[in-house]
Nucleic acid binder design. Structure first.
Length: 564
RNA sequence: UGACCGAUGGUGUAAUGGCAACACUGCAGUUUUUGGUACUGCCUUUCUAGGUUCGAAUCCUGGUCGGUCAACCA
């Protein structure tokens, strides 16, 4: 027998390598249990999509499970609208979380008991310093901090105060529970970090039940532990938190249980946009965009409304990979991913975005006919449709030039061009208004060229799209461009706000004329408007008023050539 | 000037001590009733200086550059 053919071993990213090592070594009973832990204080963006594809993908590939856990420890900023949008976006991406959605707030009592256990062990204390005092005592990255005067108070006293904090006996900002670690640690996060603070805001799930809320570092790791998470994957900025993650775990760890491990990867940066929730919130609140789902937003809901598909986002996530190096992904990669998907699936339609009327003078007045058109040349099963043709049609303004260079294949005076799926026409006359602007074209057609072929076999290089003036339907089309002018809006000079680099022309609303077949469309449908780009039916579209959003243009070689 | 992390074409990501490769972009061409798609070819790569080794992108040391960390946010 021949040797077994070597299966081309797929290269693993560094997280998959860690997992496969753990599996091989039988660590954590060879289980893979991950989680996606959003804070419900904003809408998910494409950076989250990367993380979602990573975590849920790992669970799928290693027969594990992935929890959805809302990290809801800050009632001031969190709400149910965000919870619902997050669930919707994850489902839309095609992933299923393990069991039901989980919440850190479900563990508040357990977390409180852990805290008591740590106080009793002498490793946490109630501190009476103000926020300002704590900051002053904390030192700087290059300077050690100083111990809080409350650091060595009796355990019983801390226990009593902590209980009374919970009961609501103290005002916000007066007391806090702190881990007793090392005020001189070179790692700022180890300088007696806060575990609990007093907060009287109503929580979106627990209401007024709690007057104290756990801080991220304490809550997150312990929640991982409670849920039996094995690999706790987060972004690079949490790297310096890892020693603290381990320290808290050590306080409560029972060796008979699974022990989670934090692994950090580089977050996604996309050119010409911003990815921080704070900045995205600002765009929404200041009305610079129409909302979280504005098609110019890098949010999952914005991309969905723009016309991106779940598949394209998966493709994109696969393309960009996972590593520990800071990155700036070219927006073009995202656009490639959606074109690749839509090229195979989107029905072709004809739409004229900037209409120019053409009268075909030798076509009988009052006559109309139906012509066959292919719905999708990439997919035979998509079938055919019929389009109405008549004596007066609209073509794209860019498809006519009075003084054309010789490599211009479109319509010009005296030259012949093919109307897609219709006839060859030859321009005979240009009609202008008193300002010298072209307002209409006259042309003749070749009746023998029906369908776009001529019996004499003569070659016509250019093919342009068109819509019958009599049958065409009006539609509103939103043309989108990048939201920011600079590649990295976060990286601006001092004194310049990221909002100063916003692209004032990121949205153009135009009136287009589209073929009647587009009347039968539902919200979210994807089309290729031939030669123009991919478009989708907007949320606000109706049969009375069609609205299409431009997802992305087709690759346009001519645009590049004609630049020079 | 502290600790930690990182550095491979224009952009990303592989190569796990043994021929630096894949995708995107760009350029050139073939096909084409979308100047689309598809296909072909090309351009372009290991931050730096030492060391270990028969052999280094990979291991070690120094340097350089970049990132993160001083919220009662996550």
């Amino acid at each position: 027998m021949s040797t077994t053919e070597e299966s081309p071993k797929k290269s693993l990213n560094f997280i998959e390598q860690i997992i496969e090592d753990d599996l091989k070594n039988g660590k954590n009973q060879s289980q893979v249990h991950v989680r996606f832990p959003p804070e419900p204080n904003g809408y998910l963006h494409i950076g989250h999509a990367k993380s979602i594809c990573l975590n849920f993908g790992l669970a799928r590939d290693y027969q594990g499970t992935c929890n959805l856990r809302f990290d809801d420890t800050n009632p001031e900023k969190e709400n149910v609208e965000y919870v619902e949008s997050i669930k919707k976006d994850i489902e839309w991406l095609g992933f299923k979380w393990n069991d039901k959605p989980l919440f850190t707030s479900d563990y508040f009592e357990q977390l409180y008991q852990f805290a008591i256990q740590i106080i009793k062990a002498g490793n946490a204390y109630v501190c009476e310093q103000s926020a300002e005092e704590i900051a002053n005592y904390k030192g700087t990255p290059t300077q050690a901090g100083k111990d809080s005067p409350w650091r060595n108070r009796p355990i019983a006293e801390s226990l009593d105060l902590f209980e009374r904090m919970r009961k609501g006996e103290f005002a916000e900002g007066t007391l806090s529970l702190r881990a007793k670690i090392d005020m001189a640690s070179p790692n700022m996060h180890m300088r007696d970090p806060l575990m609990y603070r007093i907060k009287k805001d109503a929580h979106h799930r627990t209401g007024a039940e709690w007057n104290i809320y756990p801080m991220y570092d304490f809550a997150h790791g312990q929640s991982d532990y409670i849920e039996g998470i094995t690999h706790s994957i987060c972004t690079l900025e949490f790297e310096v938190h890892r020693p603290l993650y381990e320290w808290f775990l050590d306080q409560v760890y029972d060796p008979s249980r699974l022990r989670p491990r934090q692994i950090e990867f580089a977050r996604l940066n996309l050119s010409y946009t911003v990815m921080s929730k704070r900045k995205l919130l600002q765009l929404v609140q200041e009305g610079l965009v129409s909302g979280w789902d504005d098609p110019r937003m890098p949010t999952i809901s914005g991309l969905r409304r723009r016309g991106y598909t779940p598949k394209s986002l998966h493709t994109f996530a696969d393309m960009i990979g996972v590593a520990r190096r800071d990155n700036m992904i070219d927006l073009g990669k995202l656009e490639f991913a959606i074109r690749e998907d839509l090229n195979k699936t989107a029905l072709r339609r004809m739409a004229v975005l900037n209409p120019l009327k053409v009268v075909i003078t030798n076509y009988p007045e009052g006559k109309a006919e139906m012509l066959d058109a292919v719905n999708n040349p990439e997919d035979e099963t998509a079938g055919m449709r019929q389009v109405s043709f008549g004596r007066e049609i609209y073509i794209e303004q860019d498809d006519f030039m009075e003084q054309a260079p010789k490599n211009y294949f479109r319509l010009t005076v005296g030259a012949e061009v093919r109307l897609r799926y219709a006839y060859f026409i030859r321009c005979t006359e240009v009609v202008k208004n008193s300002d010298g602007e072209i307002i209409e074209l006259r042309a003749t057609y070749d009746p023998e060229s029906k369908g776009g072929k001529s019996p004499d076999g003569r070659k016509v290089k250019g093919t342009i799209h068109w819509v019958s003036a009599e049958h065409g339907v009006k539609a509103s089309v939103n043309l989108y461009d990048r939201l920011f002018l600079t590649e990295d809006p976060q990286d601006v000079e001092e004194g310049v706000n990221f909002l100063d680099t916003i692209n004032s022309e990121s949205l153009k609303v135009i009136d287009a004329i589209v073929e009647p077949a587009l009347l039968e469309t539902n919200v979210g449908d994807h089309f290729q408007f031939e030669r123009m780009g991919y478009f989708c039916t907007d949320l606000d579209s109706s049969s009375n008023r069609l609205i299409f959003n431009k997802t992305v243009g087709l690759k346009d070689t001519w645009a590049k050539v004609s630049q020079n």
